[in-house]
């Protein structure tokens, strides 16, 4: 088994400026994060807003520049190489809200043709390739002529997946791909992602706050809190025997629908009252880092 993606010591600092534009400090959005994904596997990054999960995805995509650390794709460091076409052929992303990630003024076919044209597929082959891609995501070929507003949420997300697959990438980053969808539609989109993963041998980085979904999709999970991975391991073992307090809190918070699930939820009091202030957060952060170092 070889790693498709290896992340080592990845760090992203955002400067904090005062009212005069002078830098007064840094926010550690991503703090020394390391993980790797085997070829053909699914790695799940679980975290809440502000945990840094989207910043990690953006750095892998080349949409943000890391402050430190290394990202290796298929054995090669890609720092400085992200954003090139060769890189774009290997890594693609499916965004959270297909309503805003598809251009409303382009037909489905035109949207899928953008990456085809950018990566040098001759125009005369576009129609054929678009039909193939639509078939892959189980949409009829005549959808190529429709506009996004004519499609349901699930259909739009299928189009977004087809567009991401247009350049035959090896790694697909899924940023909350089903959080905008109804649960029955979500199940069908997840079916599709699993089937495509098997057919095409895709490697997935799956970002989500939905732990129940993660449990059933990811092979390995990393729990992200305040920019750090506080716990990582095989999905089943992390869920069945969480080691970190934050993982326990997350699991205890998931609304579930059966007694069996309730039984496996850690029995800890949900934090009552107000969320911590900035000072409390900093103190909390220190406590978290201590635990990690231990």
């Amino acid at each position: 088994m070889s790693a498709m993606l290896e992340i080592a010591g990845l760090t992203k600092l955002f400067p904090v400026r005062n009212g005069f534009g002078r830098k007064t400090g840094d926010v550690r959005a991503v703090d020394d994060v390391s993980f790797s994904i085997e070829k053909g596997k699914v790695y799940g990054l679980a975290g809440e807003s502000g945990s840094g999960k989207s910043t990690i995805a953006r750095m892998i995509m080349g949409l943000a520049r890391p402050t430190g650390g290394d990202i290796r794709l298929d054995g090669h460091s890609i720092i400085g190489e992200t954003g090139t076409r060769a890189y774009g052929r290997k890594v693609q992303m499916v965004f959270q809200n297909p309503g805003s990630s598809l251009n409303p003024r382009r037909t489905v076919g035109q949207s899928i043709a953008v990456p085809l044209a950018a990566h040098g597929t001759p125009a005369r082959e576009h129609r054929q390739r678009i039909a193939e891609l639509l078939e892959m995501v189980q949409l009829p070929a005549d959808f190529a002529l429709r506009y996004p507003h004519e499609l349901s949420g699930g259909q739009k997300q299928r189009v977004a997946i087809a567009r991401a697959l247009a350049v035959a990438p090896q790694l697909l980053i899924l940023d909350e791909p089903t959080s905008a969808l109804d649960v029955s539609v979500q199940a069908r989109v997840m079916d599709l992602l699993v089937d495509l993963g098997r057919q095409l041998g895709l490697t997935y980085l799956f970002i989500s706050h939905d732990l129940s979904l993660m449990r059933n999709f990811a092979d390995t999970v990393g729990v992200l809190y305040l920019g750090k991975i506080v716990e990582t391991g095989a999905t089943a073992s992390v869920f069945e025997a969480p080691q970190h307090d934050y993982t326990r809190l997350l699991l205890a918070s998931v609304p579930v629908i059966s007694a069996e699930e309730e039984a496996m939820r850690p029995k800890i009091p949900l934090i009552d009252g107000e969320i911590p202030t900035a000072e409390q957060l900093i103190a909390l952060r220190a406590a978290v880092s201590q635990r990690i170092e231990k």
């Binding site: 029955s184 199940a187 079916d191 089937d195 449990r215 999709f217 629908i257 496996m264």
Partner: peptide, 28 residues
């Protein structure tokens, strides 16, 4: 949740991924 009667309710409950795992996605 123990014994849904209506087909739609059954399908809805079946579509919810479980924290305990065992929800299988995909044809295979």
């Amino acid at each position: 949740f123990e014994a849904p009667r209506d087909d739609y309710t059954k399908a809805l409950i079946a579509a919810v991924p479980r924290l305990t795992g065992g929800t299988s996605f995909g044809k295979a």
